[in-house]
Design a binder for these strands. Structure first.
Lengths: 159, 159
DNA sequence: TGCATTTGGTTGCATATGTAACTATTTTGA
DNA sequence: TCAAAATAGTTACATATGCAACCAAATGCA
């Protein structure tokens, strides 16, 4: 009797479309793309470029290593984004007097101008997005993101 | 006074770590990687390989196009995953009698065996993950994912 | 001191990915 | 019925990405 279905019968049926990690991934990618569209074409920036600019706009003078910590990018990606941004004239690297290996990163005036144009759009997008949720659901989302982040953090492995 | 800070003063300060899209992206990547670790090394499968196997395990005989619809992968990615899985012996393509262009995809016995081993682990991971949330928060998460997905769906653009 | 180890950052290379162009079939509609 | 348009799927090419090896400066410690 229908040998070919044995496998799917004795495991829980996975509806990909109901599977949390899958939904999260699709949602996250959709949102990332929508945001990227806010600066990609007009300012010729990639997601990584913008991420680096965003942290430097807030914290001028970080080193590349510090940027990696704050952006969850790996150091190669940061290194490449930084040199691309330097080439474009959005940031400059200044030697650190204390550590001859490190380079402190600063947005140039041009970089700040771009930052000043992109940031409000990005923030507005987030606001718009959150406005589709009730106040209660916003708070719940806050909790859930925290809980899931904690559950998946390397310090406390899940299994 | 302090010209250089003008920009960051008159835009809302973006703390990347508090920015919803960023948190979502980091969380989603962390979870995806954790799940990938459940099959990547032991079964030599990529995320896309597994995604294709997952839908075919549930719905044998889909065409590549139908797989793209159900996985939110693009057709090139599906095509590549399918040929890799065929080479590995996990699936086979059969001609469709109605449409000479289409190929119906089926897991082989080996593919079904692998599916049967991986699926329970993946489901267990999700269960474990959700167990870190209260019942109320699980329901809220459900609502929020739905609402955000709706808010970002191409049919109803956000702005 | 001075040599081994660590750390900040870059580079090279192999692989992955996205876009557009392409083949082959099917559908449409004049 | 037949040429034009659409569709399933693959291939080619250019770019992005990840990992390991690398250089140079800094640190640890015998």
């Amino acid at each position: 009797m229908n040998e070919t279905q044995t496998v799917s019968v004795d495991t829980a049926p996975l509806q990909l479309s109901h599977f949390l990690p899958y939904r999260l991934s699709v949602l996250s990618n959709t949102i990332s793309q929508a945001i990227a569209a806010l600066y990609e074409a007009e300012f010729d920036l990639s997601v990584w470029h913008w991420r680096v600019m965003a942290v430097l706009g807030e914290r001028p003078g970080l080193t590349a290593r510090e940027v990696t910590e704050r952006t969850a990018m790996d150091k190669v990606a940061v290194s490449r984004a930084v040199s691309a941004l330097e080439t474009k004239g959005h940031l400059e690297r200044c030697e650190d007097d204390r550590d001859g290996r490190a380079l402190r990163l600063f947005l140039t005036d041009q970089g700040k101008r771009t930052y000043g144009q992109v940031m409000p759009r990005v923030m507005a997008y987030e606001t718009e997005l959150l406005s589709s949720l009730s106040e209660r659901d916003r708070r719940a989302l806050e909790r859930v993101l925290g809980a899931l982040a904690a559950a998946t953090s390397p310090e406390k492995p899940l299994w």
